[in-house]
Design a protein around this nucleic acid. Sequence first.
DNA 1: GAATGTTTCCATCAGTTGCTGGAGAGAAAT
DNA 2: ATTTCTCTCCAGCAACTGATGGAAACATTC
Lengths: 217, 217
Amino acid sequence: MKGRILEAARRIFGEYGFHGTTTRMIAQEVGIDISTLYYHWGEKADLYEAVVLDIYEDLRRKLSEVERAVQGKPLARRMEIALDTMTEYLFEHPEISNLILFRYFAKTRHASPLDFRVPELMGNIAYSMGLVADKKHMPVDARMKMLAVMNTIHSFVSGQNFFMPLLDIDRETYLPQVKETLKFLLIPPFLDLAGRIKVKKAGEKKAGEIGAGNDRS
Amino acid sequence: MKGRILEAARRIFGEYGFHGTTTRMIAQEVGIDISTLYYHWGEKADLYEAVVLDIYEDLRRKLSEVERAVQGKPLARRMEIALDTMTEYLFEHPEISNLILFRYFAKTRHASPLDFRVPELMGNIAYSMGLVADKKHMPVDARMKMLAVMNTIHSFVSGQNFFMPLLDIDRETYLPQVKETLKFLLIPPFLDLAGRIKVKKAGEKKAGEIGAGNDRS
DNA sequence: GAATGTTTCCATCAGTTGCTGGAGAGAAAT
DNA sequence: ATTTCTCTCCAGCAACTGATGGAAACATTC
């Protein structure tokens, strides 16, 4: 039951945000009384926090999966796979993107103890993209780049119902368009960067690991 | 008075969203009774719509200004100026970015009559960036690119209070970092694109207007 | 200065919100 | 069989929500 409530809460919070969601909406979605909800999860803010923690965990898992899937591939291909996979995944679970974007302007924040997970998420994927050598210690500019990439995807997912009528296209056209746009925007800068790092490194020591030998199509 | 209410409503709606804002919060911000608010603006949804219309107008004005400012400059410089100017502007008026992002998942939508302004905004700036030849008729992929650019900026502005502690930097470091990241991400793809279009056009007719002769640093 | 129109506030409404006490229903342990 | 424990619901609370009617204050016109 506790799990069923969490699952419903994910959907509703993801769709209406914290303030737009009432505990009665969630209870009704599950088909239970609100008292049962309070019995399992305590106050609304606690349930919300559990939801956010849950989606962060999902995101972390998916990113690890991607990280493994791209190992050994050249950078351009790595980014293609990562972007495609994450885009597809988030389109299947739009509440993840919604909840993450909702958090950006949430006044409901009491400096949640789960924010420490975000740098970790960024670190892993940045490492996997050959942006940094050290998984633990990321320079600010590398983190910014990761944030930008994630935000761009999230915006397209969260904004889909807003953008589709605006562009006058349906979902089947929208998704590939998003993928294409993401690849268009995000791959060239990182290839450039990898090229620069490679050249720089080659002048010092061996050029390993990063940007495994490939140039732009 | 009507104007003062609108101004306050912009701030509060931009900070707490539609559901997170109460009419009493706005009235208190102005220092008036809620009846006065209802007298001038009618129901809450109407005021909200007026606010959204207002920020779209501001955005349109600023984009026109940018469009004029970059005329005649080479593409890379054009994008630099546009990104810097818009970033600075939106950081000064974060409620604009907030309200736009809020709209992405707004269930409060009754197919507002102001959405027609968005393609117009995109058209102007895309034309100014040499992405399209015809201001009125934009292909879907060009619109997607514009949306991506705008969304990336908005995310950084709206997420500033979330990201700054995350990156462990203060506002004075954050703003230039955002600018740098935006330029890193967004300029190379468009330079590549302009290069391709230029080459293609040169093979057919004269290569004018687009990508006025410059290559990457 | 009387009449008219505009703007402001006070008091109040009905409905909704987050949340709780207490009474059962059902199973498990004694 | 009784006690104990976990779970679920009903009923209801106080606070807050969006919204309104009507009385004053104020300004404008005649």
